[in-house]
Design a binder for these strands. Structure first.
Lengths: 350, 350
DNA sequence: TATTAGCACTCTTTTTTATCGAGTGCTAAC
DNA sequence: GTTAGCACTCGATAAAAAAGAGTGCTAATA
């Protein structure tokens, strides 16, 4: 048995109706609201076929049909049309031009969850192979040093070092020379044990300080690695199928903890430009088995990439969500380039 | 009518039993589980009095009694004993010695919510009048500068400055001198318009750079002002009286948004050493009318103070919560002093 | 006078039973 | 191939009944 034109039309109607109402769709509804001019009995036969083919499901005898995961998949892949024109409300979200990337992402997550009525997540992913551009140790006062490491993409890391005994300016200059000489241009992957012991040897009695600098570098790569911002967790209460107490608790927990989300995102991050849709189990997160997740990658330039994701019920408005994400992608790429023209560009890591 | 010895004992039993079970407490229960050796009928009379006095409430005729807010208040103020000895599980929570204050606080919130089974919040409040210790501008490469500002309490702020035209070393040294000379030792409050225009004048054509440094300072005070970390929002699903869908949604929203919490905390922050309990409406947050909030202030030394709060149902285990908070206070004050002995102490702001 | 046993009464909760109605599947007719 | 018709299923809603917990009051008791 194959999906013919008519079956597809019926499937399409079932899914669209279900997306709107969240209620199982019956044969009579279809017969009335399509231009097929078929009686409910005929529709019933077709629906029976569609069920056998796995596109729709009957929650119980004597209920209408709802889309199965396979049905949603078919819809997303073949039936849905891009709704590119209708994103008026999203069109230009106004983000104050703070330079702090994290607060921008946080804000963006909020806006998105507000306009879509789904839960959202945004991650920032800094590229791992990030060369060290500059290292400097300076004396803040008699018993305190400040170590600063600047890596590519202007990621800056600093640490305050409390000294037990003072250090003279000459030694400081020497250390700065050793460190810059040994580290500049290297990405963390390049810093082998050999490099480290070489540095330590040169540092002589001030090994401690070299260690601190290396720590700072290590911390930078591990910690900046993946930050996840979420918003709109409570939106799930708007969809009864997600808010049965147990379900809600698990979902919100996942959104609060973020760990699992981070794993999911980093596993599925491959930098390509597509908007992806994960329906039910496709996302591999157990708590999301009743959800769909739509993700897009963005690119802020300077190698700052990341993921924007929207989490909602399977019956989410895929068309709207996807066109929103498309718009976001576009806007974000423009976001951090606009103030380069002012002559001075400022970035900060907080 | 007055509260005599016996009434107090009965009230105490009602509250303790209700804290455990969450169910209205009946007269027979009291009569069985106290050593008063009174029949349920006598207890009933006493309960009737207690209700008249406003300490307990009957949810409906033919239900037992539950404590009123006034009852809880009396319990917290007079009946509860500090349970100082029984905090075994809390005794030494192991926090990896990351030096990043925010990740410590985040972790701590998690541990607390996990051990108490309530929602938790932790804020860090950096004292506003924070003097500038050190300012430095250095050349990262031909068209990039890095500005670093170290303020008291080792709060470090840095910004990357992209140059339109190169700057020579001499100018850089001059700028550094001007900035340090003009800013060191000053707290943000001291930096008047006069100081600013003085600096700008001295900087000549490099006004831009001075502005950036001032921006960094401004940002530091405004942004570090109050950060709120929450954890364990989903714990509220463990208490039926809080998890009726509407309630849960509002509560979790408040915990997610954090804004209202921040306001609440900063309004009630007065740096004194007491552990405070807000029952129901006492907290002034509408969504928390069915909750109790217990807060404590901590002090990390160096003027870093903040609040730890626990949010749970009114029938929370006040004794345990309060002794946990006491323990936390103690441990936190030790937290950032312990590694001073290692010869090198490290702090960082990320 | 304080306490208690006894009992009718109230109100929630749980269980049971009945009813409704949407929707199906099947058969037979068109 | 399509459709009308009809018996049947099963969830949802409603109504009724039963169970239970706890009270308030009265009258008896120590």
């Amino acid at each position: 048995m194959e999906l013919d034109e008519r079956k597809i039309k019926i499937l399409d109607t079932i899914i669209r109706t279900y997306l709107e109402t969240g209620e199982p769709v019956g044969s009579r509804t279809i017969s009335k609201y399509t231009d097929l001019n078929l009686s409910s009995a005929t529709i019933r036969n077709e629906m029976s076929d569609l069920e056998e083919l796995g596109y729709i499901i009957q929650p119980h005898t004597s209920a209408g049909r709802i889309p199965s995961d396979k049905g949603y998949r078919f819809y997303v892949d073949h039936l849905m049309q891009a709704k590119d024109k209708e994103i008026s409300d999203m069109k230009d979200f106004v983000i104050e031009h703070t330079e702090r990337i994290d607060s921008v992402l946080k804000q963006l997550a909020q806006i998105l969850s507000y306009t879509t009525n789904y839960a959202t997540l945004i991650t920032s992913q800094v590229n791992r192979d990030n060369a060290i551009k500059f290292v400097q140790i300076s004396k803040v006062d008699e018993d305190q040093l400040l170590a600063v490491v600047v890596m590519g993409k202007n990621v800056v890391k600093n640490k305050v070092i409390n000294l037990v005994e003072p250090i003279d300016n000459e030694t400081l200059m020497k250390l700065n020379f050793i460190l810059n000489n040994g580290l500049n241009g290297k990405s963390p992957a390049d810093i082998s044990l050999g490099v480290i012991s070489g540095l330590k040897e040169q540092a002589g009695e001030h090994v401690d300080i070299v260690s601190v600098v290396l720590d700072a570098i290590a911390e930078t790569i591990s910690q900046e690695d993946l930050e996840v911002y979420t918003s709109g967790a409570t939106n799930i209460f708007k969809y009864p199928e997600l808010s049965s107490s147990e379900n809600a608790s698990n979902l919100i927990y996942a959104l609060e903890e973020k760990k699992e989300l981070a794993e999911f995102v980093s596993e599925n991050f491959d930098g390509d430009d597509e908007i992806k849709v994960y329906i039910g189990d496709e996302s591999d997160i157990k708590t999301m088995k009743d959800c769909s997740v739509v993700t897009a990658t963005y690119d802020l330039g300077d190698g700052m990439k990341g993921t924007v994701g929207i989490i909602g019920p399977k019956r989410m408005d895929y068309e709207k969500v996807m066109s929103n994400l498309k718009e976001i992608k576009k806007q974000m790429s423009g976001l951090f380039n606009s103030n380069k023209t002012k002559g001075i560009e400022v970035k900060s890591d907080g």
